[in-house]
Design a protein around this nucleic acid. Structure first.
Lengths: 242, 242
DNA sequence: ACCTGAACACCGTTCAAGT
DNA sequence: ACCTGAACACCGTTCAAGT
């Protein structure tokens, strides 16, 4: 993407264009979000700082504030981008439970593809266009299930919350495992070593609790199953919520 | 708590004890954790920094590192303290579902009493003595419900995860509401203003979604209900997990 | 052993000044 | 309007030096 008509020729030394910064893309919200996403994908949320981002774009941090009100807004931008990666789905009342699960699985896949970015949406109400569109899909699937309105409304909060936290924790655990491969084995050994007389339940279940972490997918699927079974128990009996 | 035998008398000006710092408690892990908890209770997690904490204790930040390996360990210490505030419960198979709910409600109450401290335990495997003891109680209640071992093991992850996230988000939302009372009304208005033709489900449910946030407790109770119903559906049928 | 001053390598955000 | 240098008010952690 040349910024001048004949970029093949080197600029003469007296040209005013010569040392005009790395002179990347002209600094727009989109360019900023692009660069931010690249950093997150490469290093995770902790690698993303306004200063680091500015440096990547060839400017100082203050320049970013002309396009973005601050770091929170930047993160919202990123969150809405990944919401844009979610599939469209046509609700089918005949198989709403499987459809719901598939949609939430897709959500997890999309979130996990961007490291621990999920963490940025944990205590935020989504308001971006893509997030709204995704919520609309989710609501559609839930309504197709014949759930009472209040149950649908609550579930639309609860389900993404579960998926988001799972994706966030999954990413952080993987990161920790990469940094320190001995961490989880050490914890498992510790669990197994607890005195059985003081912690009988722990002792009886230690193996199950350790095994569980050997497959993150199975753990996620379990939670999904519990949630959908619980929700399904509200179907058809309109009205009651609690 | 005097640090000298006759604290009522003022010290003579030549005493070597005179200007020896504020000279609080002699800097132990416990004293550090006490001070840290005081800060968190007063200002939340974001108010707690190693430097601020050291200042509160009348030293420099470097002094803390003789007693605590770093901020992560300090947070673990705090988390285990609040785990120590949880009640002991004798599992009763006859009413395990209500007992489970009560225990999780207590967990939420205890977490919420310390602002957003719950956030510090979000991506951490609890290993402190109090956390282990609390896990033992939770496992006991779940086993009393006659759930298969693998279901118990997964549930012991899933349930505290839910409670912790709820407490964390609840605290952050309350904080945001205090800082900017117009925030949530503005979002609700935005939701209500979405075009009904593009977002029919949203439009149909906007009121339910807004109403939901008017009572955090009701939202929490709903999730609790969904989870316990889902778990109960696994009872008595041993073996199958997915 | 325990504590400290000072430094290292960072943060997010603001603001007056420049073009 | 957009961008910038420089500053403000912070971070967590390390390390040589002191007692």
């Amino acid at each position: 993407m040349p910024f001048v008509s004949t970029p093949e020729l080197p600029l003469p030394p007296w040209s005013s264009l010569r040392d005009k910064r790395p002179a990347r893309t002209p600094l727009t919200r989109d360019a900023i979000a692009d660069a931010a996403m690249t950093i997150v994908d490469a290093e995770g949320l902790e690698g993303l700082s306004m200063r680091r981002l500015a440096q990547e774009l060839g400017t100082g941090p203050a320049s970013l504030y002309a396009h973005v009100s601050g770091k929170p807004e930047l993160l919202q931008l990123l969150i809405d981008r990944v919401a844009g990666e979610l599939p469209e789905i046509e609700p089918d009342p005949a198989r709403w439970e499987e459809q719901l699960k598939d949609y939430l699985r897709a959500m997890r896949r999309v979130l996990t593809a961007h490291r621990d970015l999920a963490g940025a949406s944990l205590a935020n109400i989504p308001t971006g266009p893509n997030a709204i569109a995704s919520m609309e899909v989710l609501l559609g699937i839930l309504r197709a299930g014949g759930l009472p309105d209040q149950v649908v409304a609550y579930a639309a909060d609860l389900l993404p919350q579960y998926v988001t936290l799972d994706a966030y924790e999954g990413s952080l655990f993987e990161q920790r495992m990469q940094r320190d491969p001995g961490y989880f084995p050490a914890i498992f050994d510790y669990f197994r070593s607890l005195p059985a007389d003081r912690f009988p339940n722990f002792a009886a279940l230690a193996e199950s609790m350790v095994a569980e972490d050997e497959s993150d997918d199975a753990r996620f699927e379990f939670g999904l199953d519990v949630l959908v079974r619980g929700l399904a128990s509200f179907a058809g009996r309109p009205g009651r919520t609690e």
